[in-house]
């Protein structure tokens, strides 16, 4: 992962003193600090409300420090039966993991084929994938997809929110670019000369080399899918929701219970924040690497 070395600005500019264009001015630092504060504030605000009471939530002036009711509020969310919050959380984990694994595998396969194999119609097919990336499938297909799910009897089941997401044109595109950068053509040919079959090459040569790219794609797919809202909202029911749908039902059923809604919301982003804290460095590195390699 060459991004790590690239991340450090060239050290040799250090001695140049005033004329160093990469020197951060105090103004830059203040602006960055302010941006980080702005980025963190709504999350902080979520915690404030989630740890207070409903009358605090509509107080003027607004409360600016967290209160002491977080534990009680979390308990209340979990005890609010009609929100099916834990079901939603578990469902989201199931749906998002399945989709992520599928997208990564499908994209790695296809990326290998497009980047390093030679077959008739390759450019045409790759071009068609690029075109379909522009189709907003969830909006375009919403009516027929819904009718399809109704006729299959899949409304309200997780199948309905997993299957349409198993593929992702962006993933194929990204893995094609990544494979092209990460796997030298000669390596594949050398393996061929040794008599390796295509699948063996994929396993022995491609897979080890593109693993970082797969990880980046996995993280991106996970975050994207965790957020899916429109289609799950239409096709799922309150009894068996994903976490986003569960929260939207929570907001509809408990309008003035801001504390309950905010606590649920905070719990819903918790898994993502945990992933972010644990893998922050990798996510930043991966995003940046993905951005330049693909």
């Amino acid at each position: 992962m060459t991004a790590i070395t690239r991340v450090r600005p060239a050290g040799r500019a250090r001695g140049d003193g005033k004329r160093d264009p990469f020197r951060a001015t105090p103004l830059t630092k203040i602006a960055l600090g302010f941006t980080v504060l702005l980025s963190a504030f709504p999350i902080y605000w979520m915690i404030i409300i989630a740890s207070r009471t409903n009358s605090d939530a509509v107080d003027v002036p607004p409360p600016l420090l967290p209160g002491g009711n977080l534990g009680e509020n979390v308990q209340r969310v979990l005890n609010t039966e009609d929100a099916h919050f834990l079901t939603g959380l578990l469902n989201s984990l199931i749906v998002t993991s399945t989709v992520t694994v599928s997208v990564v595998i499908i994209s790695t396969f296809a990326g290998f084929a497009f980047a390093r194999l030679h077959f008739r119609g390759r450019n045409l097919l790759l071009g068609s994938i690029l075109l379909t990336m522009m189709v907003p499938l969830q909006q375009m297909g919403i009516v027929p997809l819904y009718q399809l799910m109704v006729s299959l009897g899949w409304v309200g089941t997780l199948k309905a929110v997993i299957l349409p997401y198993l593929l992702n044109g962006f993933g194929v595109f990204m893995m094609t670019q990544y494979t092209d950068q990460a796997v030298p053509e000669e390596l594949v040919e050398a393996a061929r000369v040794d008599g390796a079959s295509t699948l063996r090459i994929w396993w022995n040569v491609i897979l080890p080399a593109v693993r970082p790219g797969m990880a980046v794609l996995a993280l991106q797919t996970f975050m994207l899918n965790w957020n899916e809202f429109m289609w799950p909202m239409i096709v799922l029911t309150p009894e068996n929701p994903t976490v986003q749908v569960s929260i939207s039902f929570l907001t509809a059923a408990h309008t003035t219970d801001y504390v309950l809604i905010f606590t649920g919301t905070a719990l819903s982003v918790l898994p993502l924040i945990v992933v972010f804290v644990a893998f922050g460095r990798q996510i930043v590195g991966g995003l940046m690497e993905g951005a330049v390699k693909a």
């Binding site: 992962m1 578990l90 984990l93 199931i94 993991s97 399945t98 992520t100 694994v101 997780l158 693993r211 970082p212 990880a215 996995a218 993280l219 996970f222 992933v275 644990a278 893998f279 460095r281 990798q282």
Partner: peptide, 25 residues
């Protein structure tokens, strides 16, 4: 190439996801 610790964590993510897949079925 990524260092070993990072690879270890990535694999951990992957195994969590696979475990979750098991839950699906």
């Amino acid at each position: 190439m990524m260092n070993n610790m990072r690879r270890g964590r990535m694999l951990a993510v992957a195994s969590v996801m696979t475990a979750a897949l098991g839950i699906t079925t």
